[in-house]
Amino acid sequence: MSNILLTRIDNRLIHGQVGVTWVNHLGANLIVVVNDEVADDEVQQNLMDMVVPDVIGTRYFTLQKTIDVIHMASENQLIFMVCRTPQDVLKLVEGGVPIKKVNIGNMHFSEGKQQVTSTVSLDESDKEAFRKLHKLGVQLEIRRVPDEKADDILKFL
């Protein structure tokens, strides 16, 4: 059984907050980025790897590969999973990935989205994905950094 410490939704995937602050807070030794585009883009992977300390491993998997292989993770792998969208997290959970808690860090504003906090903007598709995740028993919180008080996403749905 995989040891997923936390799953984070962050448009930027790996950056300073993820690669250093969250990893240290969680005690993770592996960051798994789950994104179909980045899984095949070595340039983006190399840029993200520059932010992560050498002692932390990184993997870049597609959604399907994650569903297929996450259960083979070693007990020693303390996993911090990062996705871009709530829809991706929902696909993972529906595919059998044992995600218990989701941290919503950054979901940037774009046309058709409503800004609900300084770093999170949602459209109806996002809200529906969060409602489904909640019904599946996944704990959801909005929090940029570990020392910040968590905010409940459910009040915005």
Rank of each mutant, 00 (worst) to 15 (best):
Q44H: 02
K132S: 11
E75Q: 14
E148F: 00
F109E: 12
E148C: 00
G112Y: 10
R84Y: 02
T62F: 04
A129M: 06
K91H: 13
G27T: 01
S125A: 14
L136Q: 13
V138T: 12
K65V: 01
K91Y: 08
E148A: 01
D126E: 08
S121L: 05
P53T: 04
T58N: 06
N76E: 14
E75N: 12
V102K: 08
T119I: 06
L136H: 13
P146Q: 00
K91L: 15
L133H: 10
L154C: 10
E75S: 14
G19S: 05
I99S: 08
I99A: 10
E42Y: 00
V51R: 03
D88P: 07
H25E: 09
G57S: 15
D126Y: 04
K101C: 08
D41Y: 00
H25D: 10
G96V: 12
H134W: 13
A28C: 10
A39Y: 08
K135S: 11
D151A: 06
L26M: 02
V23P: 08
S125N: 10
V20N: 13
N46L: 03
K155A: 08
E94P: 05
H71S: 15
R131F: 09
D123R: 03
E128I: 05
G95Y: 13
V20C: 05
I142V: 06
L136R: 10
Q139C: 06
N29W: 09
T85R: 12
V55R: 11
V138Y: 14
Q114T: 11
D49C: 05
I104T: 11
V23Y: 03
T85V: 13
L47P: 01
G19V: 03
D40F: 02
